[in-house]
Structure formats: C-alpha cells, structure tokens
Nucleic acid binder design. Sequence first.
DNA 1: CTTGTTTTTTGGAATGATTCCTATTACCAT
DNA 2: ATGGTAATAGGAATCATTCCAAAAAACAAG
Lengths: 149, 149
Amino acid sequence: MTKQRALILEELRKVRTHPTAADVYEAVRRCMPRISLGTVYRNLDLLSREGLVRRIDLGTGKKRYDAFVEDHSHIRCSSCGRVDDVPLHRADGLAAMYHGVERTTGYEVQSCEIDFVGLCPECRKDSAAASRERSSRKNDLAGPEKTRK
Amino acid sequence: MTKQRALILEELRKVRTHPTAADVYEAVRRCMPRISLGTVYRNLDLLSREGLVRRIDLGTGKKRYDAFVEDHSHIRCSSCGRVDDVPLHRADGLAAMYHGVERTTGYEVQSCEIDFVGLCPECRKDSAAASRERSSRKNDLAGPEKTRK
DNA sequence: CTTGTTTTTTGGAATGATTCCTATTACCAT
DNA sequence: ATGGTAATAGGAATCATTCCAAAAAACAAG
Ligand SMILES: [Mn+2]
Ligand SMILES: [Mn+2]
Ligand SMILES: [Zn+2]
Ligand SMILES: [Zn+2]
C-alpha cells in the first residue's frame, strides 16, 4: 500500500459521486501534485481487483469508481449525468433470479448488474418547469444531454 | 431506408450472436464490398435511435448490436466472451422494482438494464475437465515444483 | 435527357479514454 | 552506502468510435 494508492482510496472514500478516473486524478492532485494519471489508473485497477473499489461502466464512455463496495445498484440521470446509489435489497429476489437464469440459459451465473436510467430530482423540477414554460409559449427547442461515446 | 441500411438490418436479423460493429461490417461486406465502416456505424446508430436495433454495452470495450428488440436481458461468458439472451419475464417483478427505486431515490425511472456474467455451457465443461485433470495430476505427480526466485 | 438540389456514402483523419512502455525514483534489507 | 526490487512519472501507443470533406447517389422538375 503505497502513499499514492492510499491517497487514491482515501479520496474515493470521501465522496459518493462515483467519480471518473480523471475526477480522482484531479482530487488526488491537490494533495500530491506530482502524481501521474497512469498511477491513478493503475491503482484504481489494482484496488478494484482486490475488491476495495468497484469499477462501474454505465456505457457513457467513461468508467466510474466507487469505494462503497457493499451490494448495491446505480441510477444515472439521463439529463445531467449524475450517478446515485440504489439500495436494492437483492437478498430476497436475486437468488431465485439467478436460479431461473441458470435453468433457462444453461450458464453458471457468477454475477449480475442492474443499472437504472432516469431523471434525478433536480432535473425533474427543471423539466417540469420547462414543460410548464413550453405550454405557455409554444415555441421552444432545446437539446441538453451530455453523454457521448 | 437506403440499400446499405437495409442490408445492415437484414444481416443483423440473421444472427443472435450480438455482433460488434466490426462483425456487422465483415458480414455486410460479403454482399457489398465497398461499404465503409463509417456507414455501418452511422446506420447502426440511426437504427438504434429508431428502435429497430438495440445497442448493448456490456463494459467489454466494444458495443454490440441486437436486432431483437423484444424485452430481454443478456448474459456474457466470462471465459469465451459469447453473449446470449436471457428471457427475463420482467412483467411481474419489474413494475414493483421501478416503483421501489423511485420511492427510495427520488428519481423518475425511465429504463433499467440487467446484465449477467457467468460461464456458458461449453466453458463449464471445459473448466470441469480442466479441474478434473488438475486434481488427478496432483495425485500422481509427486515431483518437486519448479518455483523460481 | 439535362440541370440543379438534397441526401448518403466513402475514406481517411481526428478524438479520447485507457493501456502500455521505460527510464527514474522510492523503498527495504543487508 | 549498496544492491535488488517494486512503484511511479511521463509520454507514447492503442483502438473503438466519431467527425469531416469530397464524391456519389437519389430525387425533382424543366
Ligand atoms: Mn455506488
Ligand atoms: Mn439479445
Ligand atoms: Zn439530473
Ligand atoms: Zn464460454
């Protein structure tokens, strides 16, 4: 456990925003300005292989990292891109689900990931406000959305 | 609906292997050798925006495409990489799940993707055979290990 | 059949997140 | 200190995907 690795883990444990590797790099840089992006990538990879960090790929181009490795799912806002936790109590239904999948596919199921997409509370307000506005003035055209790949 | 787009869709409908863009390019090339990879990407994107094709990102680097747009999930073999369908009957449990997520997160849920990882039937056999071989070799081989260092 | 207009395709270059490489540095036990 | 080992820094390479300008095709009258 090197200083760099410890700091990366520490910074990741401070937040629940599911930062990207670049985000972690920025954060860690404030304490250790000479750290390299490669080191951040390598250690995030190492930590995730050891189970101390979870790597999340929601198909938005950049992978995200999560120091909270307890069993949970994620939801991403299709408007602003933020990612929040979903405390899915897999305990009950998941065992049956696994079993059903094994029976129907013949696979031996090792893991399963459930990702949601939706509108976060903030963006719900915004879109509600926008639609209110739209219905009063009938000429509006906007294209938010920031995801690419 | 141009010739290229029609052929891309036709080829994609022939298979249930969830090919990558490069795979589709290869397949389509056999009938239309001068088609360009860019055209394949653009049309797959277009078709998926129109709902005729489903784009799948399982976090393995390359996106995959599926002409079967009925509601189903996927399972990927962690050993050989193949991707199969999982006929999850979302109808029953999913509505409750969505509702539960909306209540606990405050999000308005728009969609959800469930991806499984496991060992396909083929690889199960292989890994079973390999482990059988390993255990028998352990029994007859009393020789010293060639550890280095 | 022309001419002009719009849409699509090509082929190649650009992008950008991630990985790879290697000289240099930090670490550790003699 | 010295040597051996492990990790880092910095930058180059990779590779799926996207972007772009120019050529081709499709379309619409005249
Ligand atoms: Mn999380
Ligand atoms: Mn499928
Ligand atoms: Zn939002
Ligand atoms: Zn397999």
